[in-house]
Amino acid sequence: MTLNTTAETETAKIARGLRERDMELLADLVERRQHRLVRYLLYLTGRREYAEDLAQETWIRVLQRGSQYNGRQRFDPWLFAIARNLAIDYLRKKRKAVATVSLPNDRDAMLLLPSSDPSPFEAAARSEDAMRLAGRLQILPPLYREAMLLRFQEDLSLAEMAQVLGAPTTTVTSRIYRGLAALRSAFEEGDSHGG
C-alpha cells in the first residue's frame, strides 16, 4: 500500500513537472534514465551511434509532449514507447535513404535493418555467459531482442510491455518465448560442442 502510494506520488510529481516544463525534474529524469534509455535503443537498433542520437531526440519529445503523460501509469513504459516510435521512424528514413526496395507496411518491420558494425553487445558483455549471448543478440531479430530487454532487464510487466510495443499481450509473450528459445540455444549448442 505504502509502495503504491509512493509510486503514485512519484508519477504524479513527474506529470506535474512535465506539464510545467520543470528543468530540475527533467534533469533528474535524464540522470536516472538516460543510461537505460540508451540501452533500450541499443537493443532496438543494434547500433551505438543511433542509440545516442535517438535518446536525445526522445528527451526533446518528452519535453514537447510532456503534458500528454497523465501520471496514472509508470513513466518508464511511456518513455520507452516514445523512444520506440522515434526509432521506427528514424530507421524508416534511413532505410528509404539506402534502399530502393519497397517498404513493408508493418511498422515493426522497419526494425529489421541489417548492420555491419561491430557488435555493441560483445563490448558490453561482462561474463562468459554474456559473451556467448552477445553473438546471438546481434543476430536476433530486434523485435525479440527488445522483448528480452524489457522483460528481463527492465522488469516491465506484460501489460506495460504491451503498452510500449503497441501489441496485444499474447504477441508480447510469443516474442519473449521465441527470443528466449533463440538465446538458450547459444548454451545448448555451446555445451554440446564443448562436451
Binding site: M23, L26, A27, V30, E31, Q34, H35, V38, R39, L42, E52, A55, Q56, W59, I60, L63, P120, F121, A124, A125, R126, S127, D129, A130, R132, L133, A134, M148, L149, F152, Q153, L180, L183, R184, A186, F187
Partner: peptide
C-alpha cells in the same frame, strides 16, 4: 533458461561520459 536470463543481466552498457550533460544542455 535460468542461465540465459542471468546472462542477459550481465551486460553493462556505458554511456558517453558527457552524454547526460549534453542532453540537459539541449533540453
Amino acid at each position: 533458461t535460468a542461465r540465459t536470463i542471468r546472462g542477459l543481466r550481465e551486460f553493462t552498457f556505458t554511456s558517453e561520459p558527457d552524454s547526460n550533460a549534453q542532453v540537459r544542455e539541449i533540453l
